[in-house]
Amino acid sequence: MRRQDAIVVTLCAGMVVTCALYVVAPQAPIYYPVDHAWRLSPGPGVAMRWYGRSAVALGAGALAMLVAWPLSRRAPDAPPPPWLPKLAALLALAAITLALGHTVVHEWRDWMPR
């Protein structure tokens, strides 16, 4: 695969995995700013989940890119089928749009007056 195509596929893999993990939101460390403490389980006091959630999603995205890069570079040097970079790009754009939409709907439900 050409270097440019491999870069597109790698970046798209990172974006899709980051967005998926952001929506799924697996258990992540929670920061308690008043206590200057990190805990895995929810406890009393002001809590901040954003650091842990972002770190897990971005870390998984970085891992996906680390896996996708050598795999796509190992593919034959001929141009990839035209649908592959298109599919990767479509998946990435759909994942970003869905993750942003999910965030808006979720926060709207939680915080907007009924």
């Binding site: 870069i7 980051t18 971005l58 942003l100």
Partner: peptide, 28 residues
């Protein structure tokens, strides 16, 4: 102002979601 918290939450999560797309823009 719980609605203001909602506006802020959308802002912080959106900022994380587009971090890799920004990296992609620089690289591409």
């Amino acid at each position: 102002y719980p609605w203001a918290t909602g506006l802020f939450e959308i802002k912080e999560h959106a900022a994380s979601i587009v971090l890799i797309p920004v990296l992609a823009i620089v690289v591409l």
